[in-house]
């Protein structure tokens, strides 16, 4: 269950920060662009495990006392946001410039245009790669094991200590992860079908 909680929180943190980063990179000024691309570069280049340790040990280094769980949420969540931001940026950039111009010519503000015209399209386009990111996040929650979070793998270890059946337990754990990723990807695929709009690229406004 901790694994599911972790997954959910990581995706939420990653989604919120990721969208902001993507918008910052596409529509922001020079400073913002530089800032968000540096953020991306750093969080994508440092291994998840190292990030976990940095947040885990770093929080006490600066005098904060946060739980292992929270440091895992922050480390892996920020990491996911760097990947998600790239997904959203690509999607936003693939939507034609004309859509923005058309929205502005209707009198929408830049913010309104992003909110009502650009994002609804970009989020649809992002679904397939986002589904990959979902799988990565599910699997990466296992790394929280390293800082002592009692998630699926650590639960498994406890059982192994009692049963001495490492192979069977680990295979079972693998199967559970497989089901989690598989079911998630299936549902996201279903969602994609549901949200599909015919002739997407050239679609005119609904109604």
């Amino acid at each position: 269950m901790v694994t599911l909680e972790l997954t959910f929180l990581l995706l939420v943190v990653g989604l919120a920060v990721g969208i902001l980063l993507a918008l910052g990179q596409v529509y922001g000024g020079k400073g913002l662009v530089l800032l968000s691309s540096t953020y991306e570069q750093i969080f994508r280049s440092i291994p998840a495990l190292v990030l976990l340790f940095l947040f885990f040990f770093g929080s006490s280094f600066v005098g904060l006392n946060i739980s292992a769980f929270l440091s895992a949420v922050l480390a892996l969540g920020f990491r996911s946001s760097a990947y998600q931001s790239q997904i959203f940026r690509g999607a936003i950039q693939s939507i034609s410039q004309g859509q923005m111009i058309a929205a502005r010519s209707l009198g929408m503000s830049k913010f309104q245009a992003i909110r009502h015209i650009i994002l609804p399209q970009a989020l649809r386009l992002s679904l397939p790669p986002w589904s990959n990111e979902y799988s990565s996040v599910v699997k990466d929650t296992s790394l929280a094991y390293a800082v002592g979070v009692i998630e699926l793998v650590r639960e498994g270890r406890y059982i192994i200590v009692r049963t001495f059946e490492p192979m069977i337990i680990y295979i079972t754990i693998a199967v559970i992860y497989f089901i989690l990723t598989y079911a998630g990807n299936r549902s996201l695929g279903y969602l994609e079908e549901k949200l599909k709009i015919p002739g997407f690229e050239t679609k005119s406004r609904k109604e």
Binding site: L143, P166, T181
Partner: peptide, 18 residues
């Protein structure tokens, strides 16, 4: 692709000696 690397490593390193 559907299972964590960590678990795969544990299977090889802790599972096989069984």
């Amino acid at each position: 692709r559907g299972t964590p690397l960590l678990v795969q490593l544990f299977i090889l390193y802790y599972g096989l000696p069984r």
